[in-house]
Amino acid sequence: MAAPPERRWGEAVLNLYIVVFFVYLFAPLLVMSLAAFNDFQYPSVTQWRGWTLRWFGELARDVRLQQGLINSLLIAMGVIAISLPCGLAGALILTRLESRWNGLLYGILVSPILTPGIILGISTLILWRNLGVPGGLFLACVAQSSFIASYCMLLFMARLQRQDRTLEDAALDLGASNLMVFRRITLPFLTPTIATAAVIGFLQSIENYNTTVFAIGGQWTLVTEIGSRFRFGLTPVINVIGVIFVVITIVCAVIWTVLRQRERQMTIR
């Protein structure tokens, strides 16, 4: 079963490429993380002044960043509260609606995903300004929800397409009220997707810059605060935030992998 030499060459080139690609992916993270521990007032790895943890302390004292984090969390909660019901409603309608309008409706409801984030922010700002609502946390929440709801909808649709509708019919036939069908049959079936959608919505919201920066007005989130510091002076505190995010992700990724491994072993047993 020896592969022909030409193919072995091809595989070697591809493997090398993958290695280069991952260096490209991870080198910036490494550089950024290192700078968080450099005892130098500007983020740098080239001007090394020795190891320090003082930037972690600085972060703990940075009230604006902390307030930004709180604002980000508040917005994320709001976004989840708006996006999940809207996305679910859209998905339910689209999976059941047998009409030629279905395609158009689908197109409009996924369009926010395909629209540049700044445009979502701008259009939301203009609409609400006309209604007398200035930029702020509420507006950021609304602007983000417009596209995060689309992501949620796609997730729900994928799940609903695998739904066995006779279960709902069976429940009705056994005398369940419409509400009970939804509560006891549909919702439990959707529970894993609701969790996924909430996590994805949360991450998207926390992450978001392009949309938020237009809708946030005089307020700020963690990310817009970082964004504005690029203009008005950077310290390695920014890098510390990056390090924290990287660590959280790696921990989550490891936990996830371990859990999956264990699950797989369970099913084998």
């Binding site: 006779t166 279960l167 019919d169 069976a170 036939d173 056994l174 369940a176 009220s177 006891r184 049959i185």
Partner: peptide, 15 residues
């Protein structure tokens, strides 16, 4: 849900 009938589905539709 208000008829005096009960239906056994082809795929049984057990929850």
């Amino acid at each position: 849900n208000r008829r005096p009938t009960a239906l056994i589905f082809q795929n049984l539709a057990l929850f």
